[in-house]
Design a protein around this nucleic acid. Structure first.
Lengths: 236, 236
DNA sequence: GGATCACATTGATCTAGATCAACACGAGAA
DNA sequence: TTCTCGTGTTGATCTAGATCAATGTGATCC
């Protein structure tokens, strides 16, 4: 288990990168490293906001549900991402681990105070929040106005983008082949579709030689130009 | 025309409320007051982020579109709200005035610098951004998983809430009667529906005595309990 | 008053995607 | 090997909401 920020694998990408060595020691004293098993929840929708955290390892989904069980994934979190609701008293959504994960947890009140005393840290947090807001708004267009084909194409492109950030194999570009970190039901919950519709759209893309599916988890983009066209306007 | 922050009607609600009188004088020197006619755009999707602003008067919609004209409203802005993308180089959406409006505009580079020098201001901006992120995520559940009836009911409740904030007539509660600041097409673009579906749902609610519609713009909530139920689970 | 125009409602029909229902394909476990 | 069990695919049907098409309504201008 990692016990201090010096050794932390995400210290250069997480908001902590705003801190100098002395400050890292200080924030380290406020933190607890916690392991979460796949499927376990870290935060529940409706709970008081008592903790915030940095993702160190693994992946999380952020969900909101209706009483009858309909669920929408409203965000995804990867290593170096920030979790939780600082400066607010309620969590509006549930945070669940998609894989075995590690997080670096703070009590919200400690964190809030520490942030106010360290403007550079607050600045990093603001930048992250603004970027996330842009991303979430993009998905409003997807959920409100895009067809199933457009949604699936957009999703594959976004995943290729995001996973390219994480991997070191390709610098600055997209990934042409990648492993989806989740199953069809999760994809459906991200796109506001059913599992069957997602499946049908994927096989359609495969039939048209736009993508290849070596197996259920792996995706290979064969014609990213065409995929882009489908994502933006649905042209077959 | 208002020429300085002292006289500004939103100085206590906008992010500027973080500033003391001296700082207000300083930021005032960076600002330009601009009037925008209903229908005019302030910022275009895809443009470089050159300006940011505070809404002083009126209302704006924030939209994102597909090439074939499908449009999704991804946010609404009222007096004291902040507009634009600080600390980023691209606007991801269009901002258009819904009514004749006034804004207090800053060059983005001036603003970015001023914010970094005034942590309290940055803190206000962060709080606003976090609140907006929560709101936007709530609408992802709406757009991804709610039925037409649920969407319209949720929308009416949110409007009653937001307009209660703005008006002084009711303290802390919801408004039972209010004027929608936009027409049916705009409502459809907010909810990811068509104008016809919105209209049908409204008349349905009227027939069931959940709401009354004195005219096309005004809404009176007769049974907010039932409206709440419809919004959350679609029960008639 | 009537004519025009923009917006809203209502009705008839169509369709994308949901729902219901088999079936397929591993990955373990015995 | 065979028997699960969880996950994905494929097919048949259904339906919520879109689309197409009148019709209504009310504000403004002559």
């Amino acid at each position: 288990m990692i016990n201090n920020c010096e050794q932390c694998v995400v210290k250069n990408k997480a908001i902590c990168s705003a801190l100098d060595p002395d400050e890292l020691v200080a924030i380290n004293r406020l933190s607890r490293k916690v392991s979460i098993k796949a499927g376990q929840a870290l935060i529940w929708e409706g709970d008081d906001s008592l903790i915030v955290a940095n993702v160190v390892e693994g992946a999380f989904k952020l969900t909101s549900s209706l009483e009858d069980g309909r669920e929408q994934i409203i965000g995804l979190l990867y290593p170096a991402d920030f979790v939780g609701r600082p400066f607010g008293d309620r969590n509006e959504y549930t945070v669940t681990a998609l894989a075995d994960s590690k997080v670096c947890v703070f009590s919200r009140s400690d964190f809030d105070q520490f942030v106010r005393e360290h403007p550079d840290l607050e600045h990093k947090l603001l930048q992250r929040t603004l970027t996330e807001l842009d991303r979430v708004r993009r998905s409003m267009l997807l959920l409100g106005r895009k067809t199933a084909a457009e949604r699936v194409a957009s999703f594959l492109l976004e995943m290729s983008d995001r996973l390219a950030d994480a991997s070191c194999s390709v610098v600055g570009g997209n990934l042409e082949e990648f492993a989806l970190p989740f199953g069809r039901q999760q994809v459906a919950d991200i796109l506001g579709l059913t599992i069957e519709t997602v499946s049908r759209q994927m096989t359609q893309l495969k039939k048209n030689d736009v993508i290849a599916l070596p197996d259920h988890r792996n995706v290979q983009i064969l014609d990213s130009m065409r995929l882009q066209n489908i994502a933006d306007a649905g042209a077959a």
